[in-house]
């Protein structure tokens, strides 16, 4: 897989959005996020890595505009429009009464586009995730991994500027997850999209991303940011390389530090 116009190296990417000094407080006392600052650049593959309850999902929901920060701002370069975002949840979140193709059509449908006018895009998205033959199937006829692929196809069918993924592969088995990780990188290489990927897995974050944001809990905050400089495309060679092992060790340590930190910081 070689991209025609490769994603520029990390230092020279254009800014896509910036979260500055974000606080999010629930019910007046649960501090889900404290002073989160994050600049997302075009072409970044960012993993948010951290223990349960450190505000990873909250950060995604803020970026998605599903909730507003208590204080702080999220600024999109050039303003945000609907259709800028694709989202993949932990569950496939498909409509069981609709066929696979109809599910992928949804983002267009909600913008008032008829199926026929966007048929090519829908079929292309299905082809990209390897499900071109399953457009007429119903979700219940698919395996867990295939449902996730449909969910991914739906997220990228509109060609969004940013794709948010909240532990998308956490419920899948190891083998399926590896396969989907590989395919996700291929897709990203083809589409040059920007991804923010929430995960609990050190290995997954190292394999996929070029930036890893390690978060700590109580209160949720950014604890460290690591850069993975290994070149794309990454495949099974990378997974078995000493470089990968070293990066995993480094990331594990950062995560470990983040998890030990929280005892010292008063919530």
């Amino acid at each position: 897989m070689t991209g025609i116009a490769p994603i520029p190296p990390m230092g020279s990417r254009d800014k896509l959005l910036e979260m500055s000094a974000i606080d999010k407080v629930f019910n007046g006392n649960v501090v889900a996020l404290r002073d989160m600052n994050l600049q997302v650049n075009q072409g970044d593959f960012i993993s948010l890595l951290g223990p349960s309850g450190c505000g990873k999902s909250t950060a995604l929901r803020l970026i998605a505009g599903l909730m507003r920060p208590t204080t702080g701002r999220i600024l999109w370069e050039g303003g945000q429009t609907t259709g800028d975002l694709g989202v993949v949840f932990q569950e496939p979140t498909l409509m069981p009464w609709a066929t696979v193709a109809q599910n992928v059509w949804l983002p267009f449908r909600l913008r008032g586009k008829s199926y026929n006018s966007v048929k090519d895009e829908v079929l292309e998205a299905l082809r990209l995730v390897g499900l071109e033959k399953f457009g007429k199937s119903y979700p219940r006829e698919l395996s867990g991994g295939m449902k996730m692929r449909v969910s991914i196809a739906r997220a990228l069918v509109t060609g969004p500027r940013l794709i948010l993924m909240d532990e998308p592969f956490a419920a899948l088995d190891e083998i399926t997850r590896h396969k989907l990780n590989n395919d996700l990188l291929e897709l990203r290489d083809k589409l040059k999209c920007t991804v923010i990927f929430v995960t609990h897995s050190v290995f997954e974050s190292v394999f996929l991303s070029d930036r890893i944001v390690v978060m700590a809990a109580r209160p949720g905050r950014v604890s460290a940011e690591l850069t993975v400089n290994a070149p794309y495309p990454r495949g099974e060679d990378f997974r078995t390389s000493p470089e990968y092992a070293a990066l995993c060790r480094e990331t594990s340590e950062a995560l470990h530090n983040a998890m030990n930190e929280h005892g010292q910081v008063p919530a």
Binding site: A64, L66, T82, L85, F89, T93, M95, L110
Partner: peptide, 20 residues
């Protein structure tokens, strides 16, 4: 999650009722 998705895609009240 589907409700969130509809919100992200800017669905109208009618669309949410009709399609979801």
């Amino acid at each position: 999650n589907l409700r969130d998705l509809y919100k992200i895609y800017g669905a109208t009240r009618w669309q949410r009722l009709r399609y979801l």
